[in-house]
Design a protein around this nucleic acid. Structure first.
Lengths: 358, 358
DNA sequence: TTGTAGGCGTTATCAA
DNA sequence: TTGATAACGCCTACAA
């Protein structure tokens, strides 16, 4: 004779379980569960008894157990290179807002753009059975082991900012090619002829697209393409600093930097070299922040809709979770050139004007 | 006769469970589990059989089930006002690094400094049975309902940046009083006599401490205390902008702003009013960022060890999780005044010097 | 050292 | 409409 499952085994400080509720309301756990989940029509009388018991016992369902039972955690994993890189907080915030709206939570991991940390994070997220993953893929391919793992679990992925077709076609990115193209065109409009680049890694889709946009804009504007004016960085301050020193020592009159952190590095290098922006070199940066309009040099930059990227990626992911056969694909959001002083456009106009009046 | 629990009920695309492993290795689940957890001495022979089965089936433990069984999720909840406020990413990053080190993950929530969102977040985190919570408490008291809930679950809390003794004494904060005090002293050293404040909410421990530091420094420097030179904001750009307009219209010669976002707002207001910093008013901000050294006005500011706050808070929380009777208490980290141009100190020196040479 | 069986808290199936 | 009872996948006394 199987002993009845005893509710709350007399443990004093234990939270009430649905068994306790059922017992207190003198109904079955089924009924109790149905009431908790506002399910089908439970008789009014029983429902009230259950509700009373819930209130009395301060019952709150254990989401862990629920997740195990229904194979759904209502949690999505997010892996970004570094939340301390000012680019990502807004992306994550967008994702959180979308997730929140649907009753989902975010499990956050940093990869530092490292394959090792990325894989550790993914493995953990998968083991915790997140319902889906938002990933800003780092450069390089997954190990076969993790590839297999991902294939087996069948958890939907949506990529943030960077594409990586080997994993999935679903991604929300920005039109980096166009952004870089316009950035360089603006430099050209500002009368710059020897334009250099401090770019991100060309192993990344973003780095590559921005680099191509740079090159094509050079050509479209009939400007020379000098390979020694091109520096490859890693989107961090330090690499911008190194690239800035190397590049500026070649005295370009225009510089396009592929993200904000590297721009900071470039400005530091310029500072050390006694070079002023935009007088000595015009600069167009990538990615805008509210404070950039207020500090000098006022950066001409290409704003990327960070929040939107996160928000839409999360929404797409949630759709795929709800229905794995959701279309998806690459969603490309438009950047927006914001002309301020650093490109030297105003300077150029003033100069042209004074020449005119000679 | 109870039917044996059947491993992998023939479901095709199901991940292998420990039952499958046990079956494949022809051992009991106990043994399989022991091997997975590198437990006590399992016979070498059996262990190898189990390991082979694990490899063959690509078995990975379901952390959800494990959490349910051992009442431990290895997850800590983090509630911050807004991850998009550049202050918090570093705090969160510090916490993540500490958590990661101990095999923990972060569940991230934003409260927007709203009691409602804060409570929703806490309730969800508690329901998901996080092992502990890192909280930057918003202004105002919990509702009785959530108070009770928190009391019942017995989940350890550690506060970030802001104290709130009604919840817990454990907190990692910065010495805001001292920081503000030094900020104002620096303004005084720069020859400023009519010093105003754009502070945070005095309902927050941070806002209050920074305000007190401001006042005491005024007094210590024999400066007048004019209540109309004090604006209360909410740490966001917009409130700094409004406060900036109101304050600057009174023409103070020095301004202390209690965080970076509000400084951005103040600078915007100054810009619109045609006021230059530091020529027309000296400014000391709170909280430093790498790029602030490179843009003008170069902000004199009080750096707060953001990363450390997050890191140490997480470490303390993990200790409390491991041993609830861990001492704890308020850990106060030291700020660091970084003198640059915005306070007008250099200007002041130059002026004194030129007067000397008259 | 190894195995058996019960428990973790829910949901879900299938009768009644 | 309700109620037993079996999953969900893992851990862990208690036995052997």
């Amino acid at each position: 004779m199987p002993p009845l499952r005893r509710p709350n085994k007399n443990k004093p400080n234990k939270a009430a379980s649905i068994y306790d509720v059922a017992k207190a309301a003198r109904v079955s756990v089924f009924t109790a569960s149905a009431v908790v989940n506002k399910k089908s029509h439970v008789g009014k009388k029983l429902r009230e008894r259950v509700e009373a018991a819930i209130a009395k016992l301060h019952y709150r369902p254990n989401l862990l157990a629920r997740s195990l039972a229904q194979q759904r955690t209502h949690t999505i994993g997010v892996v970004v290179p570094d939340i301390a890189n000012p680019f990502f907080p807004l992306v994550v915030r967008g994702a959180e807002d979308a997730a929140q709206k649907h009753g989902y939570n975010l499990l956050l991991c940093n990869s530092d753009d490292t394959l090792e940390k990325e894989e550790r994070a993914l493995e953990l997220l998968l083991s915790k059975r997140v319902d889906g993953i938002l990933l800003t893929k780092t450069a390089g391919d997954f190990t076969p082991s993790i590839r297999r793992m991902i294939a087996e679990v069948n958890t939907p992925f949506v990529l943030l900012m960077r594409t990586y077709p080997k994993l999935t076609k679903d991604a929300v990115i920005t039109d980096d090619y166009k952004g870089a193209y316009e950035a360089v065109c603006q430099l050209a409009r500002a009368g710059r002829r020897r334009i250099g680049l401090v770019g991100g890694s060309v192993k990344l889709s973003t780095g590559k697209a921005r680099w191509k946009g740079f090159r094509d804009a050079l050509e479209a504007n009939g400007l020379p393409y000098e390979s020694e004016l091109q520096m490859e960085g890693d989107f961090r301050i330090e690499s911008g600093y190194r690239g800035g020193h190397a590049l500026l020592s070649r005295r370009p009159d225009g510089v396009y930097v592929a993200n904000f952190l590297m721009t900071v590095g470039v400005l530091k290098a310029a500072d050390e070299m006694g070079l002023r922006c935009p007088e000595d070199f015009g600069l167009v940066s990538f990615d805008d922040y509210p404070w950039l309009a207020l500090f000098r040099p006022r950066l001409t930059t290409v704003e990327l809709p960070k929040y939107q990227v996160g928000f839409e990626a999360a929404e797409l992911l949630l759709e795929k979770i709800a229905n794995p056969r959701t279309p998806g694909g690459v969603r490309k959001l438009m950047p927006e050139l914001r002309v301020r002083d650093s490109c030297g456009f105003r300077l150029h106009l003033a100069k042209m004007h004074s020449e005119d009046s000679l």
